[in-house]
Design a binder for these strands. Sequence first.
DNA 1: ATTGTGTTGTTACAACATTACACCCAGGAT
DNA 2: ATCCTGGGTGTAATGTTGTAACAACACAAT
Lengths: 168, 168
Amino acid sequence: MHRNPDPRGTRAHEETHGHPVDGDAVESRARSYAVSKGVPFTPMRQSVLALLAASGKPMSAYEIAEKVSDARKLKAVQVYRALEFLQEAGCVHRLASRSAYFACDHLHGEGETVVFMVCAQCGAVQEAASELVARGLRGAAKTTGFRPRHPMIEVEGECAECAGTPER
Amino acid sequence: MHRNPDPRGTRAHEETHGHPVDGDAVESRARSYAVSKGVPFTPMRQSVLALLAASGKPMSAYEIAEKVSDARKLKAVQVYRALEFLQEAGCVHRLASRSAYFACDHLHGEGETVVFMVCAQCGAVQEAASELVARGLRGAAKTTGFRPRHPMIEVEGECAECAGTPER
DNA sequence: ATTGTGTTGTTACAACATTACACCCAGGAT
DNA sequence: ATCCTGGGTGTAATGTTGTAACAACACAAT
């Protein structure tokens, strides 16, 4: 579980193309959710979401705790609490393959099957909903009588930019 | 070596239906791999694989360390080393959604897209290869220029048996 | 004012995974 | 026989990820 943040060392293009998500959009969705649940959208939640949105890449909870530090030093447990809220709100997803969290400005419909594509080089995540994948999963399940509830699809590979810049 | 201890008692279904894996088949595959790599198939590796095959369900490394104890008490790190070998050999897979490991007697072709279906109730894992899912993933990738390398698909749900026996 | 609900700060701990190093042991070369 | 070497093993220490538990606080509704 220890993802090496940069397993190859020396990358030429580094902080670059993990293109940020729309921070305002994602925050307003979080606010709506907060209202709908009758709970506050606190500064704590706001900071964590803002950091994730600005970064545009998955970060571990501990990484978030370090980087948020606008003066105060956050403890991991506080970050986890914020992340829990943000995941419920649908603004943040967890990447199980990396134990990392990232902001997402898409609004996923209920029961939609979403594919996370994670670049092995730069860490950026792209999402896509696929009805074809959903059908495939239903098919796979049917042959064994399995009742699918909660699919988790994470594909490691190379994003267009990293594939285009093969190496250096 | 040999079949499971087979703890089938009077119990309704408890430890039971995580049944799968052919221990002999999976061990012989591990042996072939060891030969091909010029490394030994040690008792350590054998015990870990045998335990996983007999259990037929995913177990954490620490759980394995506890249960293997045929006299000796294994440390987690030793289990991880065995698991590393067994995963390379393709006999064991890791479930990221549970940080757990399980034996698998299917021989997955290179580039095959395999779906792991994990029962939320009993923990049993079923596998299925799906060309439809594979096509869906390729499609999702194509729209963004992403180059998929290593998909990871885990679906949580209920297996046929647990769905049939609604509650505890 | 009191009560209730929810957030925060803090400590402690549980669960998962790796690094480092010394030792052993087999096989081949000297 | 001896040395060398490459893996495997045993052990300790540590790193990483995630929760539990509890006191203190904020704020709104009674």
